[in-house]
Design a protein around this nucleic acid. Structure first.
Lengths: 260, 260
DNA sequence: GTCTGTGAAGAAGTTCACAGCC
DNA sequence: GGCTGTGAACTTCTTCACAGAC
């Protein structure tokens, strides 16, 4: 019956998250530390994937609060604004370390700083948008992409009429030049907004160009090397999930309830 | 707090999912009563949320296969194309019922039909797009939205210059008319592509208009009644998640590896 | 032999509830 | 009194591995 809900190796891992004060949290930019060899790592690197997405939301809410002059905030309030419950919020924040004050709450500025650090927002991530159709256009024009820190620095398309034309201040290059241009400009994030058939080829070229992360709007499952991170945004899937829920509801209705 | 089920006493429960045949399958499973007299009947508990998103992906892959003339497919092949492992795929499909043949595989056409049924794609879901800026424009022009079954039938904006102008064949109406127009046209899905400050008001009006589902592109946490389903697509969050992974990688690098 | 369907084990994620500090 | 931080309980999701149908 071993309760052990730790990680994969059963060794006494003991989840050393949230070390008490003494902020040893490894900063993103310091090469930092030591080659631990034996024993376990004192490093905190265990933020659950699911929590990461929420951290980004907290950051946005906190930034808005800071702008309105708030200096402290309680977990309950922040949680409500972020649309989660407070236990989850506190747990999520505990992955960063202990930055709250019992009986009081969190200092907004401190939390913002920590979130930015953990999310890697203390450095810039240059973005390339591939596929300057309707969507790509919209993305390119977002102008420096949401929340700054993500400047769009390259655009690509296959249409000869578009090559060289500036969109949002940046001239469009040809798909063939993806590897070279991405390499030159140090692009770290590629956004794929092409038609489905082109997506895989584009992904390959982005990888060639040294891009580490891809945000894929094309409804295609991309094949990429392990070291490349892909996130997918899939309109059709989102709509179908909604459709599923409508159907679910309709099924459970026992009477004349109108379900669209 | 007496709830208890699953694990520990798994023998008795045996989760009777996947009743074969029979259209709507409410899979009851004698609820052992309990003391909660008031609570409703929400024990249908059929398809796990996480599986639903994947079902939509399987459907797309299968449709493509059907188009190429495939008539049967094995779980391994389908799984690979969909980017999941075969055990997960089989488990997911088992939620629909038993539609495969051991030793052979699945009939593509059958599976497509079942997926469409479960995802509620046998009926149409009329879509309204609110906020005809860059993104809204792109969405409106998707022309009948991905995979049909989701016709765009109403557009809204607040800009007087846009009102009445047709975009993708549909004239833009004013935000104020959302409840009325949605009601009239029987809109079931509202897509919010407005600037953040407008999003909540828009959501309220959509709900007033009887919309059951909202796809929200605005970086805002929406407040809606329980019976309304919201899905969020958040560009900034997606980028920040990618950023997090870059930072993670950078941290773990012990040497001159270039990490963008 | 091949491939599905599925209990059961395992891992990940969420919620509870309370100790500990203000 | 109020609020954070967190082990432990609980829930959901994923993977394993094999019985059973072809």
């Amino acid at each position: 019956m071993v309760s052990q809900r730790g990680r994969r190796n059963g060794a006494a891992v003991a989840r050393k998250l949230s070390t008490p004060d003494a902020d040893n949290a490894p900063t993103a930019e310091m090469p930092a530390v030591t080659e631990n060899g034996t024993e376990e790592v004192a490093r905190v690197r265990a933020i659950p994937e699911a929590a990461v997405a929420r951290l980004a939301v907290y950051l946005r809410v906190l930034s808005a609060m800071a702008e309105q002059g708030a200096t402290t905030v309680a977990s309950e309030e922040l949680a409500t604004s972020a649309g989660v419950n407070s236990a989850k919020l506190r747990k999520d924040l505990s992955y960063l370390g202990s930055y709250g004050t019992r009986g009081v709450g969190y200092e907004v500025a401190v939390l913002v700083g920590q979130l930015e650090r953990v999310l890697g927002l203390t450095r810039q991530h240059k973005v390339a948008v591939v596929g300057i159709g309707n969507l790509g256009h919209a993305l390119a024009n977002y102008g420096g992409f949401p929340g700054r820190g993500f400047p769009v620095e390259a655009l690509f398309d296959i249409d000869p009429d578009l090559i060289g034309v500036p969109v949002g201040g940046i001239p469009v290059s040809h798909l063939n030049d993806i590897p070279e241009v991405c390499s030159e400009r140090g692009i770290s994030i590629g956004v794929i907004a092409t038609p489905p058939p082109a997506a895989q080829t584009v992904a390959d070229r982005l990888v060639q160009g040294g891009v580490q992360c891809i945000l894929n709007f094309a409804p295609v499952v991309l094949q990429v090397p392990d070291h490349v991170e892909v996130r997918k945004v899939d309109l059709a899937v989102e709509l179908q999930i909604l459709s599923f829920h409508v159907a679910r509801r309709a099924e459970n209705v026992g009477n004349g309830m109108v379900v669209r």
